[in-house]
């Protein structure tokens, strides 16, 4: 069972919920928590496990073979991403613009653009009891998150058995990287807040998840702040509200210092308990 924790906007409590849920479920279950917010992974601030593995992630980029090349320039014309440029005496390749589509390489009549692996980031794995923690982190200067997220997904496939509950902390928003994480999941939990911003962003997130045809539910964080518009929207749209975590300075303080509030805060413990029960129900 793979569960994506996502939200339309940042700062709604995605990471708080992923980390608390993962650690709490790990008390009696095998759990894998994956931080797939590869541009800004920060779950590691909350999980302290034994470091077990680090794996370099690459993707294939064409490399110019000047001996074979006849400078015909067709590669520049083929590339839809402006990643290949021919100037008078050479072909230049821009890995940041390249989408690894292979077109220039496979259509080159001189076989002068072989594809070679190029580093884009790193996956790390650590363990704390029943909990395996996997983090994808993109290298500074790399602009495309999707290939790395795909690799993290494949890595999870290779190490998690069927009984493991996989919790994936998704990036915020509704762009490609989010679609990639949600696409890999079996169920999506959308985290929101009961404010006009929270509602607006939840509606966009719901649109995204529906487009991918994934089953989903909602957690309302800081539920005692703001108004009832989010709850009303969920009722009207027949969306299940799995838990409502009340606003609490205590939870905010524990989070701010990099702590986990489940087990320390009664409200958080109770609501995370509801999420656990729900996951067991759908597994």
């Amino acid at each position: 069972m793979k569960i994506a924790i996502a939200s339309g906007k940042g700062g709604t409590g995605k990471t708080t919920i992923s980390t608390n849920l993962a650690l709490s479920m790990a008390s009696d279950h095998r759990v894998l928590l994956a931080d797939m917010d590869v541009e800004e992974p920060d779950s590691a601030l909350f999980i302290k496990g034994n470091h077990l593995e680090e794996r370099i992630v690459t993707r294939d980029i064409p490399v110019w073979d000047s001996d074979r090349c006849t400078l015909c320039g067709e590669c520049q014309e083929i590339c839809n991403f402006n990643a290949v440029v021919r100037i008078a005496s050479q072909i230049m390749i821009f890995p940041n613009l390249c989408h690894s589509c292979y077109a220039c390489s496979e259509l080159c009549r001189d076989e002068a653009l072989p594809m070679k692996p190029s580093r884009i980031g790193v996956i790390t794995r650590s363990e704390q009891g029943n909990l395996t923690f996997v983090e994808g982190r993109i290298d500074i200067g790399q602009e495309q998150a999707v290939p790395l997220i795909k690799s993290v997904g494949e890595y999870i496939e290779s190490i998690a058995d069927k009984d493991t509950v996989v919790i994936m902390d998704s990036p915020p928003g509704s762009s490609c990287p989010v679609m990639e994480v949600v696409g890999q999941s079996d169920f999506v939990i959308l985290v929101t807040e009961p404010t006009p911003f929270g509602l607006n962003d939840l509606q966009i997130a719901v649109e995204t998840v529906r487009k991918l045809g994934k089953p989903f539910g909602v957690i309302i964080n800081r539920s005692t702040l703001g108004n009832s518009a989010v709850a009303d929207y969920c009722r009207a749209e027949r969306i299940r509200v799995i838990a409502s975590i009340p606003n609490s300075l205590n939870i905010a303080r524990i989070y701010s210092a990099g702590g986990l509030s489940c087990g320390m805060d009664p409200d958080m413990s109770r609501e995370i308990g509801k999420v656990k029960a729900f996951i067991k129900l759908i597994s």
Partner: peptide, 11 residues
């Protein structure tokens, strides 16, 4: 959604 617009297929 999956298409990245590389144009390889059309070629």
């Amino acid at each position: 959604v999956k298409c990245e617009g590389c144009g390889y297929c059309s070629r």
